[in-house]
Design a protein around this nucleic acid. Structure first.
Lengths: 116, 116
DNA sequence: GCCTCATTTCGTAGATTCTCGAATTATCGT
DNA sequence: ACGATAATTCGAGAATCTACGAAATGAGGC
């Protein structure tokens, strides 16, 4: 995870429709949904949505898998993991105590990026 | 945390300079850094940096505190917590088992958005 | 091979964002 | 009050992003 990759991921999420797409697929789980079904649920034209799906996929936030005639898109939760870890890397200069009181959802873990 | 707030936060991070600013302040910890010092370390002109700091602050990602003649900016880690929680809300339709294998940094916690 | 459904690519007009010097405002020391 | 330092606002050109219909591509079914 480098600066550019992270920036692209944030840019992909910095749009109302794309954010809705991603959250919908997070709720949907690993099974995913086909492109037209996503467009239908969000009330967006297929061509518009296709470019948004391409953005999210290019940013590494979605996995796409062909299933018969349709393409199933699913949220890539590991990517969220990666960008959060990148964002909080070496938090508070590495002092865990100073970081402790932030809320509980995020565990900065170790700063060594040795595990892919 | 609503859709627009989250989108603004992602938009604020979707820029190389602002992302560098935020990560620098994460590393710096609660003490924060004055604006010109941030500009100096990142090699950016003060006026450019000021607008970026304003973006990040408007998005709720930075806290600013006046300290004598300077203004100390510090990363708001709780905001990161909030946007990640928003992003993963009702993950996998609420089935924790399906979400379990994502990597370990993020704990989806409860989906009830009752706590501000 | 042909028809149909699912999805993407193309084109272009419109809207938004970005940069940074100059001018401005705010704070402190004397 | 004055001078110096810290930070922000203003302005305008340049660059990037966005939307969506029409046309093209891809994958089956018959």
């Amino acid at each position: 995870m480098d600066q550019i990759t992270a920036k692209d991921a944030f840019a992909a999420l910095a749009h109302e429709t794309r954010l809705s797409v991603f959250r919908l697929l997070v709720r949907q789980g690993p099974g995913g949904l086909p492109a037209l079904e996503i467009a239908r649920r969000l009330g967006a034209p297929p061509s518009t949505l296709s470019s948004h799906l391409a953005s999210l996929k290019r940013a590494g936030l979605l996995n796409a898998e062909r299933r018969h005639r349709q393409i199933l898109y699913a949220a890539n939760l590991a990517a969220v993991n990666d960008i959060v870890r990148f964002l909080l890397e070496d938090c508070c200069g590495g002092d865990p105590a100073a970081c402790a009181g932030i809320g509980g959802v995020i565990l900065p873990a170790r700063a060594t990026p040795s595990d892919a």
